[in-house]
Design a binder for these strands. Sequence first.
DNA 1: AATGAATGAGGATTCATTCAT
DNA 2: GATGAATGAATCCTCATTCAT
Lengths: 207, 207, 207, 207
Amino acid sequence: MPKLGMEPIRKAALVKATILEIGRLRSLDVTVTQIAKRAGMSSALAHHYFGSKDEIFLAAMRHILTIYAAEVRGALMISKTARGRLEAILRMSFSARNFYGESIGAWLNFYVLAQTAPKAARLLAVYQRRLNSNLVHALRPLASDRATAIALTLGALIDGVYLREALAPKAPDGDAAVTMILNYLDLELGRTSAPMISPSNSFGAPL
Amino acid sequence: MPKLGMEPIRKAALVKATILEIGRLRSLDVTVTQIAKRAGMSSALAHHYFGSKDEIFLAAMRHILTIYAAEVRGALMISKTARGRLEAILRMSFSARNFYGESIGAWLNFYVLAQTAPKAARLLAVYQRRLNSNLVHALRPLASDRATAIALTLGALIDGVYLREALAPKAPDGDAAVTMILNYLDLELGRTSAPMISPSNSFGAPL
Amino acid sequence: MPKLGMEPIRKAALVKATILEIGRLRSLDVTVTQIAKRAGMSSALAHHYFGSKDEIFLAAMRHILTIYAAEVRGALMISKTARGRLEAILRMSFSARNFYGESIGAWLNFYVLAQTAPKAARLLAVYQRRLNSNLVHALRPLASDRATAIALTLGALIDGVYLREALAPKAPDGDAAVTMILNYLDLELGRTSAPMISPSNSFGAPL
Amino acid sequence: MPKLGMEPIRKAALVKATILEIGRLRSLDVTVTQIAKRAGMSSALAHHYFGSKDEIFLAAMRHILTIYAAEVRGALMISKTARGRLEAILRMSFSARNFYGESIGAWLNFYVLAQTAPKAARLLAVYQRRLNSNLVHALRPLASDRATAIALTLGALIDGVYLREALAPKAPDGDAAVTMILNYLDLELGRTSAPMISPSNSFGAPL
DNA sequence: AATGAATGAGGATTCATTCAT
DNA sequence: GATGAATGAATCCTCATTCAT
C-alpha cells in the first residue's frame, strides 16, 4: 500500500491545514494533532515529514509569502503604466492573501511568530524588502524625489488597513481598502481624488 | 514581611511584570510562574490576587489602555486649536504606549489576545471607538464633510506605522512616525507639507 | 478588642459550619477556607483553634455523635416499656441526626472519613458499640435468646434505610422509615404488624 | 512494546487499577498518577484513553455495576422457584461485588461519588431500579399484595448489611449476611426460620 | 509509507498550612 | 485574638515528540 511520491502531497496538505487551523482559531495555539487531523493523517506522520512543529509553521508562512509574491509579480507584468502597477500592488495586497479564505486570520499570527522565531523574521524581511522596492520602482516615474517617502507611507497604510480587516468582526472589504489607499496616493500625486465611500462599522481609532 | 494593604501593590507589580514579560518574549506564551517570579512572588499568590491567568492578562491590557486614554485626554485639554488636537492625538499614540519600554511589544500581542478572548475584544473596542470619535471631533472644523473618511485613514495609518515600529528590529522612532502621518494630514487639509525625512532601515512592504 | 473566652464560641461555630458545608456539598472535599468563611472567620484562625483540618473534621464528627447519643439516652429514660425503648431508639435514629438539617448529608461522608482516619474509626466504633448494647438491653426482656441476632438485624436495617434516605433525591421521611423497621420488629416479636405504607419513589434495589 | 489493539487492554487495566486503588485507600482521593502507575503506564496515557479522571471513575463504576447485574441475571436464570430467585439475588449481592477483592471498598466510595456526580447518580439509579424490579417480580408469587413493601425492606437490609461489611475491620462474611436476610424473608413469608448464628465482633448500632 | 502507542516535561490551578503583624 | 500575606506541594491535564511495528 505504500505509495511513492507522497511527500509533496502530504506536505502540501499539512501546509494548507496549518493555515486553515490558524485562521480558524485565530491563534498560534494550534496543536500538531489538530493540524494533522485536518490534513487527514496522524501527527506522527506530520513530524516525519517536517521534523518539528516550528518547521510546519515556517513552511506554512513561506507558502503564504510565496503566493503573495507570485501574485504581485504577475500583476506587475500586466500593468503597463506606473500608476497601474501601484494599483496592482495594492489590489493584490487585499486579495492575494485571501486565497484560502481563512488565511487573513493566519497572517497576523505569522507576524507574531516572526517576533519570536528568527527564521520567520528573516522570511518576512525578505519579502518586505522585495515589495518595498516594487513600490519605489513604480513610484519613481511619478514622484522621483519623494518616491521613498511615499512608498513608506503606502506600506504603513496597507499594513494598517490590513490589520483592521484582520481584526474587524465584519467580513473584509478589499475594494474599500484599495479605494482608501488610492485616495491618499492620488493626493500625493496631485490628482483630484474621487470621494471615498466610508464603510460602516469601522473603527477609526489608533492601534 | 507580611504587611497590610499589599493587594494593590502586588496587583500593580503583576501587571507591570506581565507587560514586561510579554514584551520581552514578544509572545503571549508567558507562564504565570514567569510573571510571578519577575514580580517577586509565587505563582500561587498571583492566582490568589487575580484568580486566573486570563484575568492577569486582562488587567495588564486594561492598564495599558487606561494609561493611553488618560494621556490622550490630557493632551487634548491643553491643545487649543483643532490641528493642535490632532497632532496631540498622534503624538500620544507614539509615546504613551512606551511608558514601560517593552509595552510596545505587549501591544501587538494584546491584539492577538483580542482575537480570541471576548473580554479583551470588548476592552479594545471601547478604546477604539472613543479615540475614533476624538479624531472625528478634531477634524470636523477643518474638513467637515470628509472628517469621517480622513479619520478612518488616519486611524489605519497610525495602526500601520505602529505595527511596523512594533516589529522592526530597530529602536522605535516616534517623531518620524508622527511626521509621516502629519504629512498625510496636511495633504488632506490642503497645506503644503514640509519634505519628510525618511528613516533608514525601514521596510516599505505591505503587511 | 480581643475578647475573652472566644475559644468555645469559635470552635462551636467552626463545627457547625463544617457540618453545614459537608452537608451542602455532599462531599468531604470541603476546604478549610470555605468552612472558616461560613463560620465568619479567617482560615488562619480555624487552624489556630484546631491545629489541622483533620481535627476540625474529627470535632464535627464527635459533635454529631455526641448529640445523637445524648438524644437516645434522653429518649430511653422516658420510655418505660421495653418496646417503647426500642421505638425510641429507632425514632431518634431518624430524627436526631437532622438537628442541623444538612447533617444527614454529612453523616455518610463521616463514614467515609472513618474508613481512612483511625481516630474517626475509633470514634464511630465507640458509639456503635454503645448503641448496640442499648438495643440488646431493650430486646432482652422480649426475646431473650434471640436478642443479639435481632439487634444485629435491626442495626443493619437502620443503617440501610438511613443510607437510602441520605442518597435519595427526595426529602427524607423519618416516619416511613420507622414504620418499616417496626414492621420487622413486630414480626420478630410475634405481633401482627400494621400494614406498611410504602413511600413512593423509593428504590428497592440492593446497595 | 507498542502493539496494536492496546486500547481495550489499557482501559481494562485502568478500570481494574482504579477499583483496586480506591479499595486500598478506601477513599476517592486517588490520583490519576497512582491509578496509572498501578496499571503500569503513565498518567498521560490514562488521560489519552479516558479523557479525564471523572471518566475513569465512571468507567470503573460502570464496570462494577455491569458485573453485578450480569451475575444476578445469570443466577436468576438458573433458579426455578420464586424463593430460589430471591436467595440468588441475595447471594449475588454479597459475592459478586467481591470479584476483585477490594471492590467492596470501592463500592461505598462510588456511592459518595453518586452524591455529587450526576452521571454517576444516573448510573446507580438504573441499576437500583432494575434490581428492585427483580425483587418485586420474585416476591409477587409469594406475597402478592405485600411484594412492594417487602422488596423495599429487603433492599434496605441488603444495603445496611453491605455497608457494615464495607466498614467493618474484619473480613466480610457473605454467608452470615445472607442468612440474616433470609431470616427476615422467611419471617415475612410465614416460614419458621432456622436460628441464626450471630457473627462475633459485629456492631449492632445504627449508622 | 504510516500510525497507534507511549511518555516526559510543563502549565494552570488549588489548598492546607505558616508567619508576621 | 485575629488576619492578610505568602508559599510548597500536589493535581489534573496537554502536547510535542519518539518508537516499534
